[in-house]
Every structure is written in C-alpha cells, then in structure tokens.
Design a protein around this nucleic acid. Structure first.
Lengths: 232, 232
DNA sequence: TGATATAAGTGTTATTATTACACTTAAGTA
DNA sequence: TACTTAAGTGTAATAATAACACTTATATCA
C-alpha cells in the first residue's frame, strides 16, 4: 500500500460494481433470474443481482459472493461479459460495473430458494424493464449466448444428468429462438458421438416415452482436445 | 455527488486503468504496437499503452485519450476485451484494468510517429515479454481476433482503401496462421459480392501486377442487415 | 379391451458448400 | 527474345446441410 501511494495516488478512484446475468432453461423456455432491488436508488425495481467490489477480493470472487448473497447460488461458472462505465449509467454516482453472465439449468434453483431470496425466473418473452443499463446487459448476454450455442455443445451442461433428445432439442430451439428439424437434429447430435444411450425412458412428456441419454465427458474432452469444433 | 455520498459512500473505491492492445498487419505479418513504459513501477519495460481513468470521462473516451497521448493514434475503433482485476496484477497496488483492443492497418502508423512517440511494431513471432498481465491480454486478444476473422469480413477495413486479392489473402493467412488455396479464396471472397474491381493494377509485388479492388460498404451493410453471416 | 391421441423415432434425396488440384498469362529484367 | 515471377483461372469429387412423411409405442378413455 505504501508503494501504491507513491506511484498512483494522484489518480482518482472509483466505485466498482459487479452485475450477474443468470440465464436459465426451463420447460422449453429461456428465462432470466432477477429480483427487486433492495437498496436505493431504484429500490424495489426489477434488477440483475449487483453489488460492490470490496477491498481484498478479485472480480470473480466478488461476482460469486454477490450472487451467493442475493440468490443462494454457489459454484456457478460465470464469464465476464463486458464492463460498463458510462458517466450517467447510475443516477446516484459514478460506478464502473463489470457484468458477468452464466447459463444454468433452471431446475438447479429451487422454489424454496426463490421464496427465501425473492429471486424470480422470468421468461425472456415477458421480461419487465430493468433498472439503469441492465436491459442492454441482458441483450448483450443473449447475443453472446446465441453465438456460443451455435459453435459449442453448450447445452449438455444445462440439463439434468440424464436427458432426452427432444429435451436437448428444445433447449437449442429456445436459445436460437427457432424450430429445428428433429431428424436432422438427432442425426447431427448423435454423429458427434458424445452421448450415451441408456435403457430407461422418460415418460414425463409423452405416453410413448423418450430414451434417456447421458453426456460422455471423456469423449467430449478428447474431441475438443483434437481440435474438433461443434456446430449445431 | 451529494446523492452518491448518500447511497454508496460506505463502499471502497479503486483505481481504474485502461490498456490498449493494438494489432497491425504489415508485410504479411501480424504485429503488435508496444512501447517502453514511462512511469514506475516497471518503468522502461515493454508494455501495452495504459493509463488511468480520469473523473468525468467514459471508459471508451479514456482508452482513446490514452492511446492518443501515447501513440498519436486517433479515431481508432477499439473494442472492450476483458477487465482484469486480480489482487496482485499490479505490484504497486490494486488497479482494475479494462483492456481494449483494435486491429489497424499498420501503414496508418508512420515511421515519424513511431519515432516521436517511441511506439514500435513488433512481429508476434518475436514478441518480448510484457509487464504484469499484458502477455495474457495479448493472448486473449489474439484468440478473439482469430475467432472474429473466421466469421466476419474483418479484413477489409485493415487494408488501404484499394487493395489486391493476394494482399487480402495474405492478411487472412496471417490471422489464421495457415495457408489458403488462392483459387478457393478468390472464389469465396468474390462470391460475397462486396468487392468492386478497379482498372488499375498494383505492381509492387509482381511484374504482372494484381488488380486493385475496393470494398463496397453499401453492399456490405445490406448483406449484414439481411442477416448474412460471413465465413472464410 | 379396443380405439384414440400424442409425442418419439426413423431414411432418403436434392441441394449446396467445401476441398483438392495444375496450367496459362502478363510483364519486367537480363 | 528468353526467363522469371506472381496473378489469374475451372472442374470434379466429396462432404455438409436441408427438406420432407410415415410408423411406433403407450397411456387414457369409451
């Protein structure tokens, strides 16, 4: 700290905040986890999960702490999206905010937690307006998600360990926001050879039932290491 | 400011810095513009162009100001890459640094400026070690550049207004770091129908000379707006 | 218990995109 | 005028994508 004073003390300092964009997938829909802001300004309005960077913590740690404090979610892999630093983005003063985002299986976030923390899944189709520049954060996060989904097998980690092909297809359709041909989808996804078919069926969606599959991480790793790039 | 005090004053503030990663393309090679750092700590060591965010300026503006002050470059479109906030990234104290990057035509940066500002183009192949985490910033910037190049016609804006197809191909080869078939390259690039052939030839690279082309921005915009996505 | 409704599952063909590959041409220099 | 060098050109084989409709399994209801 003494050294810091020596070199940099003439420069101004700023509040640094973190905002967490949590996308989830549930019942064939892409959703966003939001809550009503707990502090002024804009208290009570819909907001992403945000808070301030503290002394002695890295940006990643801060984002994870804030998410945990506000939602109870732990061990979520979030990725930095963008840093927002416009002068007027926060009416209460200059705040530089680093936005992080993650896509999680919505089934991981229980009703119980939702009640306890007041965090709510809202379908992207009927998203309310969010405070400050949170809308544009979400928009940017969604753009990246779509781009990602079309080149990485992003979906596998978002479903329960065992899932059906129609479920996986619904996930991709939700991300792309368009319909896919089920024969072509099945062909493509199976040709990657990273799914293991099980003997059981899931009958929650049809009388006939759909066979359950499991994602083979070892094979997946091998493919990726060999430079294979996925495209749906 | 009064309002700011009211709500946020209990939170700590941080130094916020900007670092500029400037890639350039010249003589068939990808290069990086760097200089020897002018202030402590690490004064005199190779570094990206960095400086501190000032009161009353946005991140973008600050990045542009810093680039201008240290290199003389103006009106460069830089894009935010990532924000670095590890505790120990700067030995002189806690600094949150937002990295911006750009790819520019190296011919835009004259010898004269280079002498005046002490900024030097260095081929990526023989890059010296850079201070702090600047190496990983460059690495990340390069990864993004490669990804970009394969899906957007990024190259057009990096060459002089008039350029030849072999020059354009050399640029893509430099970014991908691999050879491309000239017949296939030409076919693909011309099939996009965004280049206008001129009557003159450029004879700087061969006796025969290669026809000059110009990038048709109007057609390009139309294509992009119609949802076309480029792939080389 | 047989009819019905519903989602799962299955192949083939046409079209398009990608890759591989070798000779000719233009023009300056010796 | 022969030589050298990079620019320029076409085709065929292969692979990837897109379009398309019927059958199957099984729970539910008459």
């Amino acid at each position: 700290m003494a050294v810091k004073q020596q070199y940099y003390s003439e420069h101004p300092k700023f509040h640094v905040a973190l905002d967490c964009i949590i996308f989830g997938f549930d019942k064939g829909e892409l959703k966003l986890l939001i809550h009503k802001r707990r502090f002024e300004p804009a208290k009570g309005l819909w907001s992403l999960f945000g808070g301030f960077l503290a002394e002695g913590e890295s940006l990643e740690n801060a984002a994870n702490r804030i998410l945990r404090e506000l939602t109870g979610l732990e061990k979520i892999y979030m990725e930095e999206l963008q840093t927002y630093g416009n002068m007027d983005r926060d009416p209460a003063g200059r705040v530089i905010s680093v936005a992080y985002s993650a896509l999680i299986p919505a089934h991981k976030y229980s009703e119980e937690y939702s009640r306890k923390y007041g965090a709510t899944w809202v379908s992207l189709k009927d998203l309310p307006g969010l405070i400050m520049d949170h809308d544009s954060m979400v928009e940017k996060g969604l753009r990246r998600l779509k781009r990602r989904a079309s080149s990485q097998p992003i979906g596998f980690e978002l479903l329960p360990k065992e899932f059906t092909i129609p479920q996986l297809q619904a996930l991709y359709e939700a991300i792309y926001q368009s319909k896919l041909d089920k024969r072509n989808f099945r062909k493509k996804i199976l040709s990657m050879d990273v799914l293991v078919k099980l003997d059981e069926k899931d009958k929650s969606n049809s009388r006939k039932g759909a066979f359950l599959y499991r994602f083979d991480k070892r094979k997946y790793r091998k493919l990726v290491d060999a430079g294979y790039s996925f495209t749906i």
